[in-house]
């Protein structure tokens, strides 16, 4: 039986990689060096790893957002009468607690940064002219900074006795 069929990797059996290929653990195939492999002679990259951190951030923030956003939907739309109960008094009741203030603050920042980074990717994908990209991203970053600052300000300065 071919050894490739019981492999634990994510790649399925590879055609021609069985015993017929002539290679075995005793007679391994020659190692092929990846064409763009970094070696000690490769000059140091000047670009940094921004895109990799962005990619990682989408995944890490996504996991946290599952809890924050689905919890938020349950509280606001499902439990305790659903949307009908929401009003100034309900908001005042929840933001009296630092726990829910922190919850909402974290949700605001993570969702805005996650969404903005997602939209940045989409602009990069579809807007081809440099000027279009510049303007769309400028608009995106302006709206993002504005929304995050406004939301943060509202959570921190909320006053239940405003009137």
């Amino acid at each position: 039986m071919s050894t490739t069929e019981t492999t634990e990797s994510g790649i399925g059996p590879v055609e021609g990689a069985g015993e017929l290929s002539g290679y075995s653990p005793e007679n391994p195939a020659p190692v092929i060096e990846p064409p763009r492999k970094r070696t000690t002679k490769t000059p140091k990259s000047t670009r940094g790893n921004f895109e990799m951190y962005g990619w990682l951030f989408m995944r890490l923030s996504g996991i946290v957002l599952v809890v924050l956003v689905i919890g938020h939907l349950l509280i606001q739309l499902v439990l305790d009468g659903g949307v009908s109960k929401i009003g100034f008094a309900f908001v005042a009741g929840r933001w009296a607690s630092p726990f829910w203030q922190t919850w909402d603050l974290l949700m605001l920042w993570l969702a805005m940064l996650h969404g903005a980074n997602g939209l940045r990717t989409i602009i990069n994908d579809y807007a081809e002219r440099p000027n279009t990209r510049l303007w769309l991203k400028g608009l995106l970053y302006t709206a993002t900074v504005f929304t995050i600052l406004l939301g943060t300000l509202v959570i921190f300065t909320f006053d239940p006795n405003i009137r």
């Binding site: 929304t147 406004l150 300065t157 405003i162």
Partner: peptide, 15 residues
Amino acid sequence: LFVHVLDTALVRVSP
């Protein structure tokens, strides 16, 4: 989310 932050900001205007 953008619209939602704007509507929630109205708690700073008046109940």
